[in-house]
Each structure stands twice: as structure tokens, then as C-alpha cells.
Simulated assay, not measured.
Amino acid sequence: MSTPDRTHHAPDKPQFRPTIDERANHCFGCGPANPQGLHLIFTTDASNPAAITATADVNLTRLHEGPPGYIHGGIVAALLDEAMSKLNRPLNVLAMTRHMEIDYLRPAPLHRSLVLEGRHLRREGRKLFHLAELRLPEGTVLARAHGLFIALDEKLLAQAGLTQPEG
């Protein structure tokens, strides 16, 4: 079966390009369509714009194991990064991680309910400063991260076809 040659055909109207949000359904952290993903579901509280939080329950299995019985450190880093990234939407920005610093305070156990929380700290122009913690339900902090996110320029995103035009 041959495939039509489309190299010389210009479409009659602009082709639909999914937005970054629409493509996020395959995100490793929160994408429901990613069979290998973490499938995190966040609750965001933006009632106080100066103290926005994003919280998710976490209970990982041996698939995410590092040391026997504990979550791999790279997965812990992904969890913390994901919690901080969820703070950007209520701030009405698309931002990417620029820098992240992690303190691994205690091993994070597998097969146990954990709490993942991100908190917005402050904004300086395009720079967004966030904090995230992975905790036991009773409050013991297992890992903590500070992150710097950079808000992306919407005009550059539009030029690259990564956003939908308004209208």
C-alpha cells in the first residue's frame, strides 16, 4: 500500500496543533495516558495568591524501588519537580524548571501513603520560586526541594506553534 506524497501539498487551512496542556496527558508525573507514569492527581489551593499550594497523595510500588523497600531517589526528584510545576497554572504562566535543589532527609517508603505538596514562595519577573515536600501523613518530611522556574514567553511559544491563538 503506497502512501500519498504530501511534501508538495499545502493544507487548505491551518492544521490543528495541540497545546502543551493537551499534550500533557502523556506527562510522566500526571498524565493519565502514560502507562508507565505516576498518575498523580493534584488538588490546587489558590485562595491566597501569595501562598498557592498543590497537593497529591502518593503510594508507589516496587516498580519505583531504589534501595529495597524505598522509592528511588530519581523518582523522589520527579515527584518534587511535579509538585512545584503544578503551581505555575494558578499563576497563569507556562514555566519550566531552571534549577532544583533537593534535600533527601529520610528514605521514602514504598507501599505507604505519602503526601506530596508544592508551595509557591515568590515571583520576581519571569522567575518563580517554589518549594516542595514529600511527607509521611503524620507530617515527617522525607524530602524537600527548592525550585526556580522560568516563565516562558507566550509570543515565542505561539511562533513555535505550541499554543493556540486566542479567538
Rank of each mutant, 00 (worst) to 15 (best):
residue 153 D to N: 13
residue 132 A to F: 05
residue 135 R to Y: 08
residue 66 G to N: 01
residue 63 L to Q: 10
residue 36 Q to S: 07
residue 90 P to G: 03
residue 162 L to T: 02
residue 152 L to N: 08
residue 33 A to C: 12
residue 131 L to G: 01
residue 128 L to Q: 00
residue 20 I to T: 14
residue 21 D to Y: 10
residue 150 I to N: 04
residue 34 N to G: 02
residue 136 L to F: 05
residue 34 N to Q: 04
residue 146 H to D: 11
residue 50 A to R: 09
residue 22 E to I: 04
residue 35 P to R: 05
residue 150 I to T: 12
residue 137 P to R: 06
residue 124 E to P: 03
residue 125 G to N: 07
residue 122 R to H: 14
residue 110 L to G: 02
residue 65 E to P: 10
residue 45 D to K: 05
residue 50 A to I: 01
residue 114 L to G: 00
residue 127 K to R: 14
residue 139 G to A: 04
residue 57 D to T: 13
residue 117 E to A: 03
residue 59 N to I: 08
residue 74 G to D: 07
residue 102 I to N: 03
residue 67 P to K: 03
residue 98 R to M: 14
residue 99 H to V: 10
residue 99 H to W: 05
residue 135 R to A: 15
residue 11 P to K: 02
residue 131 L to P: 03
residue 89 R to T: 14
residue 38 L to M: 11
residue 120 H to N: 04
residue 160 A to G: 12
residue 29 G to Y: 02
residue 7 T to E: 14
residue 96 M to H: 07
residue 20 I to R: 12
residue 105 L to T: 05
residue 76 V to C: 15
residue 28 F to S: 03
residue 49 P to F: 11
residue 6 R to D: 06
residue 156 L to W: 07
residue 27 C to R: 01
residue 5 D to P: 12
residue 71 I to W: 01
residue 76 V to I: 15
residue 65 E to C: 09
residue 137 P to E: 07
residue 37 G to P: 02
residue 163 T to L: 14
residue 163 T to F: 01
residue 55 T to F: 07
residue 108 A to D: 12
residue 6 R to H: 08
residue 80 L to I: 06
residue 39 H to C: 07
residue 10 A to I: 09
residue 104 Y to E: 06
residue 86 K to P: 01
residue 101 E to N: 13
residue 82 E to Y: 02
residue 101 E to P: 06
residue 11 P to E: 03
residue 36 Q to D: 15
residue 17 R to V: 14
residue 132 A to R: 00
residue 49 P to W: 13
residue 129 F to M: 09
residue 95 A to V: 01
residue 30 C to W: 03
residue 167 G to M: 06
residue 35 P to D: 10
residue 69 G to F: 05
residue 140 T to E: 13
residue 25 N to H: 10
residue 138 E to N: 12
residue 167 G to Y: 11
